[in-house]
Design a protein around this nucleic acid. Structure first.
Lengths: 155, 155
DNA sequence: TATTGTTATACTCTATAACTATA
DNA sequence: TATAGTTATAGAGTATAACAATA
């Protein structure tokens, strides 16, 4: 006998358990892929910062911190490294001199594309062992997860 | 018009892209949950080490490193912190004195249970906004992801 | 000589707290 | 006084390389 409608609570706990087992596993692969970059290395936080600035050019430091879900001190340090590596251009807003305006440099844009492409290709390769239906299922699950967890970032 | 059977390649890339957007997001929540522990704080790596030793009592340092997908130096450092906090008992194997035998202490077991329970409950709460079907879908997706990414850990 | 762990060194991520500059 | 960022400090994760102990 199976239970076609298990109580919500048990289902939630089972899913949360699976999530705690799986996410760190996948995260590790993403991280080492980023590190394995042919040219220069990019940490996951740096990658996410570049990806955000690609979507939101001219964002402030606070916006980066909010988006990444870190303190402004952490965002400042991460950004500083990207500025030093000439991936990000940082300047004061003339209208509001407390704010900084952050933008990708050409080198930053190029590096982001390369990092994205390499990691994406590697992960796609890993998924090749599955069927189309299975890949679609994973994708749909990720879309739902993103909907649940994304709002938390922008507290 | 929709494409009921998109080419594998595009589908793989789309899924990989979604994965790169979503996993770091979820990971951040797990991490901050661990940090928000009432009693003592446990990093994700420390948590995973405890969880592994719970499943594999008496494991060696190499086994921990393999399982976590890190170098033995990293595993050694993480383990050392757990030993110092009295969560792990570390001793030499009498038969093979190069090896260490790692086991959870009672305090380690207890802390693991608490950390697991708290994080699990919080994540389950976050998933409450979804329907049973959606939660099941996420769970199935995670099971598949685990199958794909787990073998990589044991290189 | 090969294997198992540890130590040394060096980065990065992360937080909190104290600070500077601007509003 | 309040806000936007930076700096100081500290602990943890991570890697590589060099090392010690054991087989």
């Amino acid at each position: 006998m199976s239970f076609p409608n298990p109580p919500q609570e048990e289902l939630l706990i089972a899913c949360a358990t699976k999530l705690m087992e799986t996410i760190p596993l996948v995260m590790r692969t993403i991280r080492s892929d980023m590190r394995a970059q042919s040219s220069t290395t990019l940490s996951v936080s740096q990658f996410r910062t570049l990806a955000f600035l690609d979507r939101a050019p001219g964002a402030s430091l606070s916006a980066v911190a909010d988006h990444l879900g870190v303190t402004s001190a952490t965002a400042s340090a991460t950004t500083e490294r990207l500025v030093q590596r000439n991936f990000v251009d940082r300047r004061h807003d003339p209208q509001e001199r407390r704010r900084v305006v952050l933008q990708l440099t050409e080198a930053g844009k190029q590096h982001l594309q390369e990092a994205r492409s390499q990691t994406r290709t590697h992960i796609a390769t890993l998924l090749e062992s599955l069927t189309d239906d299975q890949v679609s299922l994973i994708q749909d699950g990720l879309i739902l997860l993103k909907q649940v967890f994304e709002p938390l970032e922008h507290h």
